[in-house]
Nucleic acid binder design. Sequence first.
DNA 1: TCCTATTTATGACAAATATCATTTATTTTT
DNA 2: AAAAATAAATGATATTTGTCATAAATAGGA
Lengths: 228, 228
Amino acid sequence: MSNCSHCIMKRFNALKTLTHDELERFSDHKTSIIIKKGENIMTEGNSINGLYCIQDGKCKLTKLNTNGKEQIIKFIKGGDILGHRSILSEEPVGLNATALEDMRVCFIPKGDILESIKDNPQFSLNLIKNISLQLSHANTAISQMAQKPVKDRLAETLLSLEEIFGVDNEDCIDVILTREEIANTIGTATESAIRLLSNLKKDGVIDLLGKKIKIINKNALKNISEGY
Amino acid sequence: MSNCSHCIMKRFNALKTLTHDELERFSDHKTSIIIKKGENIMTEGNSINGLYCIQDGKCKLTKLNTNGKEQIIKFIKGGDILGHRSILSEEPVGLNATALEDMRVCFIPKGDILESIKDNPQFSLNLIKNISLQLSHANTAISQMAQKPVKDRLAETLLSLEEIFGVDNEDCIDVILTREEIANTIGTATESAIRLLSNLKKDGVIDLLGKKIKIINKNALKNISEGY
DNA sequence: TCCTATTTATGACAAATATCATTTATTTTT
DNA sequence: AAAAATAAATGATATTTGTCATAAATAGGA
């Protein structure tokens, strides 16, 4: 099994402040998991007893509404970590993490994480910063959901998806989402999302190649996202 | 000037884990401030060099949208703290904190807070829990903004306002908000908020006494907030 | 206390968005 | 490769929500 000391994860996030000894301890206790597309890494309301390091693959963090609708809160990719909020706050997981494609994930038991939090102030500070940043993004999202029309939110979401996942060799946003998932991200009906995507294509702002989306005019998209 | 050791604040929040010595240190360095209705305690984008303890009074945390609209993210009252997120994440303040009425606030310099964070793991853990809880609430808010109609969100907000501020001696929700502020909380036009409030009154679910709002049928309101 | 400014309220209408129905395209299964 | 299932696209229509206009009520200042 691979060793945490050499893992790409430690280039990212809070993990980069871990010492060699801490990484060795993680290595000894970690388990590697394969999550198939559509499966959950974590499930809303469940308790969790460790930290997940995403080696490879993408997932969506969702919340099920009282009306049965799924809201996508955030996207996660290789190099991200999951579960630290729940460990720190000692509360159940608040979101579902569902694989958008097959994933490789490492699980590090809670005990090891807590030990590093106790011993390594820089590590815990970085975890706090991570959560703070998420809160800051969430507040922005509340504001935009509440006050921007669907078209603006779609434009914003497309820009943000390209930001997060980058582009493939055909310059398409490098993530495969159904139209329903896009709708569940911006908070609208699937048909509305489809219609607005078609309009953006007609206006030459984006191109649609099956499920793949290519941003053609990023400036136009930025303007739309700001209501122009 | 009053002493932190005897302050009501230490019954609440993260501050309850502070030692007597820490509180004495806070006492020596703290300043008391009066914030007049309409004034800002903190302003979006500004940096901050301490923690605010709300002794008395209410304020709103808002975000100004690119389209110039104000979104109310959260309400704050006596016993709450402000600014800890910014201190921990070493980032500018993300929200405006504007007094809804005259307020008494204590300011504790950043240095003292950071010292306690370093020395007192329980204190920093409680700060983290506070931020985590806020994140959890924010995610719920995103989901509801995105997927619930305005009427449901209004019902939800009224229940939540009563939860936060309690009721006065006439059983009215104990906070004075303009209709515009209510609209900016649920993310709708002022006229829409007014209309829906009128409807709720007509249906006997709430009563409107000037700016004061009394919840008459809490169950009906709960049902509305869940889409029934 | 009166005057003025702001806030609340309500109607009329316009725009945005959702829902339903149907067709076409794509993916998955057999 | 064909059949079945799922997803995407689009039109028609209903509903929700926003905007503008105006009147009534309330609050704040001279």
